[in-house]
Design a protein around this nucleic acid. Sequence first.
DNA 1: CCAATTATTCTCTAGATGAGTATAATCCGG
DNA 2: CCGGATTATACTCATCTAGAGAATAATTGG
Lengths: 331, 331
Amino acid sequence: MLTDAREIMQDQAATGSKAKRSSKAHNASVDLIAVVVAMTEHGPSVLAVGAGDALPSGPFEHGHRSLQSGLRGWVEHQTGHQLGYIEQLYTFADRDRIGKERQQRVISISYLALTRAEHAAGPGKRAWRSWYDYFPWEDHRSDIPSMVADILQPRLLAWADGVGQDHIRRERRQRAAIAFGFDGRHWNEELVLQRYELLYEAGLIEEATRVSERSASPRPVPGATMIADHRRILATAIARLRSKIKYRPVVFELMPPVFTLLQLQRTVEALSGRLVHKPNFRRLIEQQELVEETGETTADTVGRPAKLFRFRHAVLDERVAAGTKLPLSRA
Amino acid sequence: MLTDAREIMQDQAATGSKAKRSSKAHNASVDLIAVVVAMTEHGPSVLAVGAGDALPSGPFEHGHRSLQSGLRGWVEHQTGHQLGYIEQLYTFADRDRIGKERQQRVISISYLALTRAEHAAGPGKRAWRSWYDYFPWEDHRSDIPSMVADILQPRLLAWADGVGQDHIRRERRQRAAIAFGFDGRHWNEELVLQRYELLYEAGLIEEATRVSERSASPRPVPGATMIADHRRILATAIARLRSKIKYRPVVFELMPPVFTLLQLQRTVEALSGRLVHKPNFRRLIEQQELVEETGETTADTVGRPAKLFRFRHAVLDERVAAGTKLPLSRA
DNA sequence: CCAATTATTCTCTAGATGAGTATAATCCGG
DNA sequence: CCGGATTATACTCATCTAGAGAATAATTGG
């Protein structure tokens, strides 16, 4: 099982330690929320519950051995899905949420999990939704979605120009330009959360406006909504994953045991939302020795048959990739 | 104020959302733990309380507006220190910890904060401890500490060889070699947590053994201890910071408003625990336009006077550094 | 003025990366 | 059985980046 060593270690650390300090901590309820990602026929997909508008989640309970095992339990119970790779995303305290009579706060701990769609056992087959349903502006594979220039840009500009002070207007314009690549800037696929936050701040996200205010607010931007802040958590997960595939071999968690290099490339492209240069992608994968040939080739496809590869699990032990960006002396 | 946009946004997200799902979540107490880092005369230092064996911490309470503000409150109260940059580290659930009669779990949310030592107001002047007091094997600036070869290596090998099965022994040896750079491997300064975990697993960390077992266990390795798992949290923070200075301009949080390039270099070296190549470091900083000249030069020192620089806060708005490692097409 | 000391600039090299071209192996319709 | 379409794989080339070390500049203290 491919797992992020650091995260796993941390969680083991959590369950193994013994505390000595007694504290007058007050109580809170603790929720676990999972973003479960897999590749389906519809592209990079997320496991949704309810009407496709909620992430699997549930309270952390006494029976749970650890946070992660509690999360696994809830996902399995709600979707019939067993999780492999898990990493923690973020913990936040919800301010407005109040439990029954006695005031009580809710702590939400969110996780990113990677799996293969086939692993599903049970009913939840329909539960996969392409994550681009929720973020249609994030898919730049075929081209920049027309809605970016047609809808997002004018509305964000209107939002920026709707403010009186000059420096705030400029600052808003600049933030929008950086996040969405306006004015000839490059698109940065990792800024998923910043883009969502910006739209949210501009009042263009449906979740940002209360039902009572809907008529007064600007029309929200296209994209499926979710309850509470689940869509924000999803944005966080996508951003994390898009960043992580660049320095850790996590893509393979989403691949079948055996695959062609083009299939691998298509997966990376689906996740990052943009196309990569085929020969260079191949060179990158091979020089890092991430895969090994099985000896087999594909048969069913048109054109020259492609070699099949499998992930070299050994690289997880051999190396620990860490991005060097300091001018260290090699010595 | 230089802050990590992603983290801050997340926390705002937390306080701003409204939840709809009612849950039967059971109660837990929530603790906030801070690793506060600054550069002092003794190098990279961490703010400690008690006998220098605990991190500032306290329960998350009703009065707190958000997790971060709760953390700020506790640190300020316990150390008189105001915090600037804050980012979340990790959340874990402590299994063995039980509150009074009714069984209750403790959730610990840990944070990394960066500040300047001078910002201290109040008594806690003695509270700064070099982080190398706790991890003496992590400082490779002058040379590889002799204890690595003299103490750590033999004890880790003894631990590995103490197991019967051949493949487990090999796996332990390999893990130790990768983490500590044995057998001619390179030292990877980011593996702070992995190294601590390995020593912990090998029973060489004092916190790992209960008092009653102390006589039977192997003698722990040098290094100041901390209560509970605070030293592990510190290791996590150091690892995160060593990684982050490579792709985000966070070092400047630790610098005075005006500094020379050598001072900046010394700070980076102190954090990463290793030396960098001076001309190349300079080239890196300048080509990224992270700093601008003040026009002044240092006077007090021997040798050619150095130009003084200040951080260009504008870069935070202009750019969003994100590590590209995919063979994307430039378009 | 000279030696010592620190700062700053340049040069050289090897490797990584972006981009495009060329060749290989298959299928399919004639 | 051949030629075009299609996909896979292998090369080539220019540019950029990062590691390493040398050369030059501006001080201080004798």
